[in-house]
Nucleic acid binder design. Structure first.
Lengths: 200, 200
DNA sequence: TCTACAAGTTGACGGTGTCAACATTGACTA
DNA sequence: TAGTCAATGTTGACACCGTCAACTTGTAGA
């Protein structure tokens, strides 16, 4: 049984998702065509429509998987003792940064509004898990300056995302004077830490 | 002469560019198809290829126009005396932020690596004009903390871009606790100003 | 065992970017 | 002034794409 080519695949939905992520890694999200995914999975060109109504739904599922990975990494990092809970924001910044550098194509496409439905229920629950690590990130007592902690959270999130985004787009490589210190995020985070957090 | 439909358009290249920008404003960059631009300009479906070899080249030209607008606005703002030169970074942050809010579709597509060739010579010279306003932005004497001024420049640029990008993607609207203070950038910039710049 | 439904296949449709072949025009040259 | 030729525009074709309808195959449950 299940010899060579069973008519039914078994777990085609999952296989399509894997093929999608593989395509994204290999040639960015623009390489993700329904027909290419179908061919990579060894299935007819319209088969994916039985599991994902849309190209957008397929890519949204892939984005959900990526966000899930990031949530997982975040929880792992927050569990270690070397990263005190009162500096959760700092920890999350590093996780995001390292993930983006390691999987640039993935980090890029998950923010694409036209390809990813961020209102999708699955996406929203995954995002909530991520936000949950953000929800009590800055213990008020850990702040020197008395600035609004929500503002500080948005600041750090924006900073990390912005730096990663611009860096992946090569915006900092073209300038002579910025060419040297390639990896600027740690310095920036340290700068913020000294400005807004007590030294332990 | 030049009665109704002269065979030659006159300045088709410019007309195509205008139509492209209009389409971007109206329905995001995904609405920019070569054939749609051609139709909007009243010309045959393949005419644009005589002026822009590629869809990418066409959209790159549009991006160059947008960057040019931003450069212009930046120079205007820096020329006014109410924004002291030693706070150039702050001024640029506001320009970028206001432009992004006013023309969200434009701000979004100019960063799309797959659609815009950032290595294009025109783009690079335009970007250099923008960077030039960045080149001596932070007078060392204006800094309190003695942090590396390049790092500070990258920090502010990243912060603004990241905040605008995430905000346009609706990432801050979904959280109950962040819903109130919609316009957070001024507060963040003020926060940085107080942390890193002398009060005048 | 029969039957209904889920899971794949096939073929078709309109829309897309791009190319080659052709038509028109205007500017330069003789 | 006549002639030519490159730039500019048109037409038609091709492969690829997403999507849908109609069909086939397998399977689970009454």
């Amino acid at each position: 049984m299940a010899a060579k080519k069973p008519f039914h695949h078994g777990d085609l939905k999952r296989a399509l998702l894997d093929a999608t992520l593989k395509l994204i890694d290999a040639e960015t999200v623009s390489g993700v065509t329904i027909r290419a995914v179908a061919k990579a999975t060894g299935v007819s060109h319209a088969a994916p429509t039985k599991h994902y109504s849309d190209r957008r739904q397929l890519i949204t599922a892939a984005a959900n998987a990526v966000f899930g990975e990031i949530v997982e990494l975040t929880h792992q990092r927050l569990a270690t003792s070397e990263h005190p809970a009162r500096e959760r924001l700092i920890s999350m910044a590093h996780v995001l940064y390292e993930y983006a550098l390691e999987h640039p194509n993935r980090y890029e496409f998950i923010w694409r509004r036209d390809l990813v439905d961020h209102d999708n229920p699955d996406i929203m629950t995954t995002m909530n898990k991520l936000y949950y690590g953000y929800d009590m990130p800055v213990d008020e007592s850990a702040m020197d300056t008395g600035f609004d902690s929500d503002t500080l959270a948005v600041l750090i999130w924006s900073l990390v995302h912005g730096y990663v985004d611009l860096r992946m787009k090569g915006m900092f490589e073209e300038r002579q004077d910025l060419k040297t210190g390639q990896d600027r995020l740690p310095a920036m985070i340290e700068l913020l830490r000294e400005a807004f957090f007590r030294t332990p």
